[in-house]
């Protein structure tokens, strides 16, 4: 299952925020789970560096796109910090998705001219 280093893709600058927001669309989540989710859904293409994840999470919090609360992790006797998407965060995600789609389309046109 583990991909070799060469198969991994560098996260495009600025896309991590979008991936985190997208992950939170399915419900509140803590940092560990978010990282695992992104890794898993990208078929391990992305390795989320903790040195990038936590700044990203806190950046989203500062901008008011997510809120946080401490809660028990399910089935465990541990308190973890959960991140929840706010309405502003949802709007931001839509905006980023649109931009992303445009970007992909544009790059696609350049790379594979019809």
């Amino acid at each position: 299952m583990e991909k070799s280093e060469t198969e991994r893709v560098e996260l495009l600058y600025g896309t991590l925020d979008m991936l985190v927001l997208q992950t939170l669309l399915f419900g509140p989540c803590h940092g560990h789970a978010i990282a695992k989710h992104i890794q898993r859904t990208s078929d391990e293409a992305f390795l989320v560096e903790h040195g990038s994840l936590y700044p990203a999470l806190h950046r989203l919090e500062r901008q008011g796109w997510v809120t946080t609360n401490w809660d028990k992790a399910p089935g465990k006797n541990r308190e973890v910090k959960y991140y929840l998407l706010t309405p502003a965060g949802k709007k931001q995600l839509t905006a980023q998705q649109n931009k992303w789609a445009q970007l992909v389309a544009a790059i696609g046109k350049v790379m594979r001219p019809a």
């Binding site: 560990h32 936590y54 992790a73 465990k76 541990r78 910090k81």
Partner: peptide, 16 residues
């Protein structure tokens, strides 16, 4: 303090 706690929890979950 909160950040330190958050990171510790992350490592604990990973260890679990």
């Amino acid at each position: 303090d909160e950040l330190a706690r958050e990171l510790r929890a992350h490592m604990d979950l990973e260890a679990d």
